[in-house]
Design a protein around this nucleic acid. Structure first.
Length: 212
DNA sequence: CTCTTGATGCGCT
DNA sequence: GCGCATCAAGAGG
């Protein structure tokens, strides 16, 4: 069978590189989420890099725990965590193995299965809102912790695949501080997005929560 | 459009 | 206990 080049799955070696190379290179790639009701395909428009070794913003900064264990495993797998008491966020583990780095998938454009995504995202009205933000993205794709550690680089019928897609012109790639990351982690411009794309989430600086 | 706030579970110190 | 890689609704401009 003939496979279009943009439909070629990314090899695991794609993720076995320094995370700061991988993160901008993920823009324009297509994440395929196979659900029981059918596929949902997401063109990535916004990501953030987390580098466990030197990065106080990373979940793996203080070493391995039960929660972040998959970040220390082989690249090309998912890392799903639960936050703010009600949301999930989806990351891709990057190599080299042992570095515990990863990329948070922050936003994208639903290119296939918008009806399925909308069913998961009852609050959304506009198509551009469906995956505009990390927890919205995970909700639209029906991702929770049951999918933590899934292999996204095998074609054995698992819940995820990642296709080559059509990366944007390098001139359209922007970078800046990561959303919601404070402290020493705020200095790194490790958020990457596609310029002028309506599915990119609005930037919010880190704000310590007030006591009540 | 922007800004504020409540909702909520749990990992970590 | 504190604080989080957040979202959605509501108020105000």
């Amino acid at each position: 069978m003939i496979t279009a080049p943009e439909r070629t799955p990314l090899a695991r070696s794609f993720f076995d590189r320094p995370v700061l190379e991988i993160a901008p290179d993920l823009l324009g790639r297509v994440l395929v989420r196979a659900t029981d009701d059918g596929p949902i395909e997401l063109r990535l428009t916004e990501v953030e890099a987390y580098d466990g070794a030197n990065d106080p913003g990373s979940h793996s900064y203080r070493g391995r725990t039960d929660r972040n264990a998959v970040m220390f495993g082989p690249p090309g797998h998912t890392y799903v965590y639960f936050t703010y008491g009600m949301w999930h966020c989806l990351n891709l583990v990057c190599g080299p193995e042992g570095k515990a780095s990863g990329v948070l998938l922050r936003a994208g454009e639903i290119v296939v299965g918008a009806d399925l995504a909308r069913a998961h995202r009852a609050a959304s009205r506009k198509d551009s809102d469906l995956a505009q933000g990390p927890a919205r993205l995970a909700t639209a794709l029906s991702v929770d912790r049951a999918l933590n550690g899934a292999d996204a680089c095998s074609d054995d019928g698992g819940p995820f695949r990642i296709l080559t897609g059509t990366p944007p012109d390098r001139a359209l790639i922007r970078s800046g501080p990561r959303t919601g990351v404070g402290g020493d982690g705020a200095v790194h411009p490790w958020r990457y997005w596609i310029a002028d794309d309506t599915t990119v989430s609005p930037y919010r600086a880190h704000v310590p929560r007030k006591r009540r």
